[in-house]
């Protein structure tokens, strides 16, 4: 039977389940155990909100962000075929402060996606590495910071002038 009316607590639970699905999360104390057992089994990997959760989310978000920029970037580079007038006018747009700040965010996204991708490859091709997965996650964070901070400062040099 299809139900159209739900109690507020049922609606709240449904909302939480949606969140769990969207972020591959297992929210603590979401449902009493018996009800959870009655529900459908989760057929996706969940991360229970620890470091893996954030790596997973950041990898997806940076991936989507870089992909969107990539498509825009292909479109703008194609304009070079229309000659210097068209192309240099377009670059004027990219010289605006908003875009130059966005470029720093882009570099951060590419760098994070690359470093976390190395971590994923290590785990995937060398399963024994799961034993040191916390160290690998830390290494990604450390290497990211070491490379990104000087790069960002160098890229934002124009702000100081």
């Amino acid at each position: 039977m299809v139900r159209f009316f739900f109690t507020p607590s049922e609606r709240k639970q449904a909302g939480r389940r949606k969140l769990e699905r969207l972020f591959r999360l297992r929210l603590a104390g979401n449902l009493p155990l018996r009800q959870r057992e009655m529900g459908k089994p989760t057929e996706y990997v969940t991360y229970r909100g620890k470091a893996g959760q954030w790596s997973w989310l950041l990898h997806r978000l940076t991936g989507i962000g870089v992909l969107l920029f990539l498509l825009v970037h292909i479109a703008d580079i194609t304009l070079i075929g229309w000659g210097p007038q068209v192309f240099d006018r377009l670059l004027f747009l990219y010289r605006q402060p908003v875009f130059r700040l966005g470029e720093v965010v882009l570099v951060a996204a590419v760098l994070y996606h690359a470093l976390n991708g190395i971590r994923l490859c290590i785990i995937d091709f060398w399963p024994a590495a799961t034993a040191i997965h916390k160290k690998l996650t830390c290494a990604v964070a450390v290497i990211f910071t070491v490379f990104f901070v000087p790069t960002a400062l160098y890229m934002l040099n124009w702000l100081m002038k």
């Binding site: 210097p84 192309f87 240099d88 010289r95 570099v107 160098y154």
Partner: peptide
């Protein structure tokens, strides 16, 4: 990892949009 990072390094960090033109 190599292609994109080298591209970003050359075209977005070492040479920025004030230098790059047609």
């Amino acid at each position: 990892l190599f292609l994109a990072l080298i591209h970003v390094l050359i075209m977005h960090v070492l040479h920025d949009v004030t230098v790059i033109d047609f």
